[in-house]
C-alpha cells in the first residue's frame, strides 16, 4: 500500500531533492491560529508536516517545545481537537503528508483502536511516538500498521548496528534519525558525522532517512539535506512563533507570517542542496 509519505518521497526522488519536514505543536498558541499555521506550511515550502500532540510531561523535549505544549494545553487543546485540526487541514490539502508526533499516554487513554480509526479517517499518514521503542511494538506500532498508518521510528547515535535491524523491522514511511543524544532544541551534530550515520542506517534499509535535532538555519538545513533524504526543523519554528506572540502569549497579526517566512527560507536551504547519491 502506498501512503502519502511514500508518494512524496517518490516524487522528491524524481525531482532529485530532499524533503523539508516541519514540526509545530497542535494548538499552539491557540487552535485557530494553529490551523492557519499548518495550512500555510505547504505553500511556504514544507514537504511533510509533523504535528505535535501536546503532553504535560514531554521527557525528550527541551524548553521551547515543552512551553509550546503547555501553551496549547492552556488554550484547551486535546487529542480530539488535534484530530479535528487534521480534518480541517485535509479540507484544503489532500496530498501533503501529515505525521502526528508525541507521547503514548494521551493515545492510550483515548483508546488505541479508536484513535487509529479516527486518525486514519481524519487524514493522518504516520505516527512518531517518542516513548514506544520496538520492545513495546504490540502497544501501537503493529495495530497502526494494520490500520494503514506509517509508524516512523527514531534512530539515534546509541542505536548501534546490532540494534538497528530491530529498530527498522516495523518502521515504515521514513526513518527519523536524531542526530545527537539529547533533547529537542539542543545543538546539532556536524553534517559530516550526520552523513556517516545516515550512510550506516542506509546499509540496513531502503527507507528514506530524515534527520532532525539542532537544525535552525537555511545553511544548516542545506548541509543536512545534502546527506539525507530530509531535514526536520521544529524548535526554530516554535521559537519564531513564540517571538511573535503578544505579552500574554496570544497570537498577533504577524504570527503566521513570521513562521511562514522562516519556513520559506529554510525550504530554500533544503531545495538548494544537491541530493546525495543514493
Amino acid at each position: 500500500m502506498t501512503t502519502r509519505i511514500d508518494a512524496t518521497f517518490a516524487e522528491l526522488a524524481r525531482q532529485g531533492r530532499s524533503a523539508f519536514v516541519t514540526f509545530l505543536m497542535a494548538g499552539d498558541p491557540d487552535p485557530k491560529t494553529s490551523l492557519d499555521l499548518i495550512k500555510a506550511l505547504p505553500k511556504a515550502g514544507a514537504d511533510i508536516i509533523e504535528i505535535g500532540m501536546p503532553f504535560t510531561d514531554p521527557m525528550a523535549d527541551g524548553p521551547s517545545i515543552q512551553a509550546a505544549g503547555l501553551r496549547a494545553l492552556k488554550a484547551g487543546m486535546t487529542l480530539k481537537k488535534t484530530l479535528a485540526m487534521v480534518r480541517g487541514f485535509r479540507n484544503d490539502d489532500t496530498t501533503t503528508p501529515l505525521v502526528l508526533m508525541g507521547y503514548y499516554n494521551p493515545i492510550y487513554i483515548y483508546g488505541v483502536d479508536r484513535f487509529l480509526a479516527d486518525a486514519k479517517t481524519a487524514g493522518v499518514d504516520g505516527l512518531i511516538i517518542v516513548d514506544l521503542p520496538p520492545e513495546e511494538d504490540g502497544e501501537l506500532c503493529l495495530p497502526a500498521m494494520k490500520a494503514g498508518l506509517n509508524f516512523i521510528r527514531l534512530a539515534t547515535p546509541t542505536t548501534d548496528d546490532k540494534r538497528l535491524p530491530a529498530v527498522l523491522a516495523n518502521t515504515s514511511g521514513f526513518v527519523y534519525y536524531v542526530s545527537i543524544t539529547g533533547i529537542t532544541g539542543s545543538a546539532g551534530a556536524d553534517s559530516t558525522a550526520v552523513g556517516e550515520a545516515v550512510a550506516r542506517i542506509k546499509r540496513h534499509t531502503k527507507l528514506p532517512v530524515c534527520v532532525g535535532f539542532g537544525i535552525r538555519t537555511p545553511d544548516a538545513a542545506r548541509a543536512i539535506a545534502q546527506n539525507a533524504n530530509g531535514a526536520v526543523v521544529g524548535t526554530a519554528l516554535v521559537d519564531a512563533l513564540k517571538a511573535n506572540l503578544d505579552a500574554e502569549g496570544r497570537a498577533t497579526a504577524g504570527t503566521v507570517t513570521a513562521v511562514a517566512d522562516l519556513v520559506s527560507s529554510l525550504a530554500e536551504g533544503v531545495r538548494s542542496a544537491r541530493q546525495a547519491a543514493e
Binding site: 525528550a60 503514548y104 516513548d131 521503542p133 513495546e136 527514531l154 539515534t156 547515535p157 546509541t158 539529547g182
Partner: peptide, 12 residues
Amino acid sequence: GGRFVAETLMPL
C-alpha cells in the same frame, strides 16, 4: 510495568 522510553535510552 514495561519499557516506555526514548530509543536513545533503550540500549543502555
